[in-house]
């Protein structure tokens, strides 16, 4: 088997630019997904079942359908309905945010509910409102416990972002497919893509374990 390193070198600038796109849309997906996920998680925890239902539905829908279906709906349906034309990058960021929000909402809910009931009671008995107790007592403790599952979710999200290649986001996998189409070669583009993704996920894992250790010793 001949392995054409020269082709990889030729495509490397594209892969590197693609890596920036992958990091960019994943990061935006994580940020929006986390903010949205917190709101949806709190929404699902509301005592009023009727008010909580839309949030339950949201989570069920996004966890119960494939990401590729969701992103196609957003890319060919939702985004054109809003801005009049398709936009792959917008669809990619929206898709990743909405999808990860559903998973992150469940991580938040589990994290918050894992905190002993006595913490809320103590905070309330000191005169704090529910919101103050959440903000100063419950959430800081819950966040610590959420770091490992959130880390997993970030890694999943980064890998899922490869699917946005199918809606023309010029990220890593997009250039992999372009290279395959141009040279009719398989190993070079996809092994390169695999190595880049692997480096990215390893980096996240490393950063997260550092963060966990630092918080553990605090």
């Amino acid at each position: 088997m001949d392995f054409r390193f020269d082709l990889i070198m030729e495509y490397l600038p594209f892969f590197l630019r693609g890596t920036l796109y992958t990091i960019g849309i994943s990061l935006l997906g994580v940020i929006f997904g986390t903010a949205l996920g917190l709101l949806i998680g709190l929404g699902k925890m509301m005592k009023n079942k009727l008010l909580a239902f839309p949030f339950l539905l949201y989570i069920s829908f996004f966890r119960g359908t494939p990401f590729i279906v969701q992103i196609f709906i957003i890319h060919f349906g939702v985004v054109p309905a809003i801005i009049g034309t398709t936009n792959g990058i917008a669809a990619g960021i929206i898709g990743l945010s909405l999808n990860s929000a559903a998973y992150i909402a469940e991580i938040f809910r589990a994290g918050i509910q894992s905190i002993d009931r006595g913490q809320m009671e103590a905070a309330r008995s000191l005169g704090m409102t529910h919101t103050q107790a959440m903000r100063h007592v419950i959430l800081p403790q819950a966040f610590k416990r959420m770091i490992p599952p959130l880390g997993n979710e970030f890694i999943v999200l980064l890998k899922e972002s490869a699917i946005t290649a199918l809606v023309t986001v010029p990220e890593i996998m997009y250039w992999g497919r372009a290279m395959q189409g141009k040279y009719y070669r398989v190993w070079e583009p996809y092994l390169t893509a695999a190595v880049i993704y692997f480096i990215l996920t390893l980096t996240i894992s490393f950063l997260l374990s550092r963060l966990e250790k630092r918080l553990a010793t605090e």
Binding site: G118, Q119, S125, K144
Partner: peptide, 11 residues
């Protein structure tokens, strides 16, 4: 109020 399980804020 003082609780049986103290309920201090561990963080």
């Amino acid at each position: 109020m003082v609780f049986q399980q103290f309920n201090l804020f561990p963080h």
